[in-house]
Computed example of a mutant assay.
Amino acid sequence: MATGEYRGVLDRFEDDLAVVLLERDGDTIGDIALPREQLPEDGRHQDALFAIEMEGETVQTISYCPEETRKQAEQAQSRFDRLSQRPPGSDEEN
């Protein structure tokens, strides 16, 4: 992994490890597995977003981004709601 700053998305937990997807410029470029305890406590939930600074393969800093996480969840819910609505006139009559 290149040294630099990344956006991290908590993808899943595997036992005591948290798998975080690393993104840069909107693209997922890799993932890292961290001990669950290394994550900020308030960000220990799926789809939490983080600002991560890496130096090679080592996490230097990881910060939970609660406002960005909230906005992302709202946008996803809004997309789901729009997709789940039936188009007008799609009701079948028997």
Rank of each mutant, 00 (worst) to 15 (best):
M1A: 15
A2H: 12
E5F: 13
E5H: 14
R7T: 08
G8P: 13
L10V: 08
L10I: 00
L10Q: 02
L10E: 00
D11K: 13
D11M: 10
R12K: 10
R12A: 10
F13I: 12
F13A: 06
F13Y: 10
E14N: 01
D16Q: 09
A18Q: 08
A18Y: 10
V19L: 11
V19Y: 11
V20F: 02
L21S: 15
L22E: 02
E23P: 05
R24I: 04
G26W: 03
G26E: 01
G26Q: 02
G30K: 01
G30N: 01
I32Q: 01
A33M: 13
L34I: 07
P35H: 05
P35F: 08
P35I: 06
R36Y: 14
R36M: 07
R36E: 15
E37F: 14
P40M: 06
P40D: 09
E41H: 09
D42G: 11
D42S: 13
G43W: 04
H45K: 12
Q46G: 15
Q46F: 15
D47S: 11
L49C: 06
L49A: 00
F50R: 02
A51L: 10
I52M: 12
E55K: 11
G56Y: 00
G56F: 09
T58M: 03
T58G: 04
T58Y: 04
T61Y: 01
T61P: 06
T61H: 07
I62G: 09
I62N: 09
I62E: 07
S63W: 11
S63K: 14
C65P: 00
P66T: 00
E67A: 07
T69E: 02
R70V: 08
R70N: 05
K71A: 00
K71W: 01
Q72K: 03
E74W: 02
E74Q: 00
Q75N: 09
A76L: 14
A76F: 04
Q77C: 07
Q77G: 06
S78F: 15
S78W: 13
R79I: 14
D81G: 06
R82T: 07
R82E: 07
R86D: 14
P87V: 08
P88N: 14
P88E: 12
G89N: 04
G89I: 01
G89D: 04
S90E: 06
S90D: 07
D91N: 05
N94T: 15
N94S: 15
N94M: 15
N94I: 15
